[in-house]
Amino acid sequence: MKWDPRKYTQFSSHRDRPFFDLTARIAADAPRRVVDLGCGPGTLTAALAARWPGAQVTGVDSSQDMVDQAQALDQAPDNLDFVQAGIEEWEPQPGTDVVVSNAALQWVPGHQDLMRRWAKQLDAGAWLAVQVPGNFGAPSHALMRELAASAPWKHKLDGVLRHGDAVDEPEDYLGLLTETGFEADVWETSYSQVLHGEDPVLEWVRGTALRPVIAALEPEDFSRFEAQYAHQLRAAYPARSWGTVFPFRRIFMVGRKLG
């Protein structure tokens, strides 16, 4: 699946806020190695490098386009680097004291098993901080899945979109971290985001949830699908004189390994 860094960063003020809400709960003083899994265009990874100038900070992303943009960051700190790799392939090196994954693990089937593996591999005292969207039941996602499963599209989009099992509930992640030896803090937040412009919710999902559909369909077919989907989104998220409200639920988990 191809990612578009420009489209992804279109709503950066909204997309960045959960990252800082997540990483504010990490109480590591002087980590040796910090890794950002699913780093995207790298601007938030750079914030980690600035926060911990004594650490080696590495951003990991499966998209070469994202990594290329990250490597071209202006005034990047000397302690920052980026590598292209899938999250499934990554394993913590010795001295990895902080692992962050912000809005990425929902794309990885079975990411709970990865988290359990990392929990075993990380040293005592290491921090694991993860944020995933919790809005797969929201109209933005439910309408997309329903349209993809309808008669005109089912044969072309069968199996393309993830369903309600893309992420777990907060209590499930709390159990996972606690059972693998972490002191855990798990919570959820729903942001009432105000978006502006024409079809702003459609513009939002073009950068994330709609990417698999874009990849699966020919351009002419995608234009037809998008037009039908946009009509449904306008009804689900009516525009007001001051903007369009797009509620977004996020699930956060931060744990420190005991021992």
Rank of each mutant, 00 (worst) to 15 (best):
D168C: 04
D36W: 04
G181P: 04
L217K: 03
E226D: 13
R32S: 14
D199Q: 14
L161P: 11
Q232K: 15
H196W: 11
L48N: 03
P152G: 10
P133K: 06
G164R: 06
A28L: 04
K257W: 00
L114H: 10
D81R: 15
R117T: 15
W90D: 05
F82L: 07
D68Q: 12
L48W: 05
Q10C: 05
K154L: 07
D21G: 00
L73R: 12
G207C: 03
A148F: 08
P139M: 12
D29C: 00
W118H: 08
V67W: 03
A85V: 01
K154I: 13
R117L: 08
I87H: 01
E183G: 04
R240N: 13
S190Q: 15
A239Y: 11
V132L: 02
R15W: 00
A166W: 01
Q84N: 12
F19P: 10
V130Y: 06
H163E: 15
L233S: 08
A49M: 09
D158C: 11
P139Y: 13
R145C: 05
Q71D: 12
V34N: 02
Q75N: 14
S241M: 11
A72D: 10
G42N: 05
D4W: 06
N102Y: 00
A47Y: 00
S140R: 06
T58C: 11
G40P: 04
R6Y: 08
L217A: 01
D185K: 00
L44V: 06
K2D: 15
Q193D: 13
G159F: 11
G159C: 09
A24V: 00
P219H: 09
R211W: 05
S223R: 14
D123R: 08
A216L: 05
S150C: 10
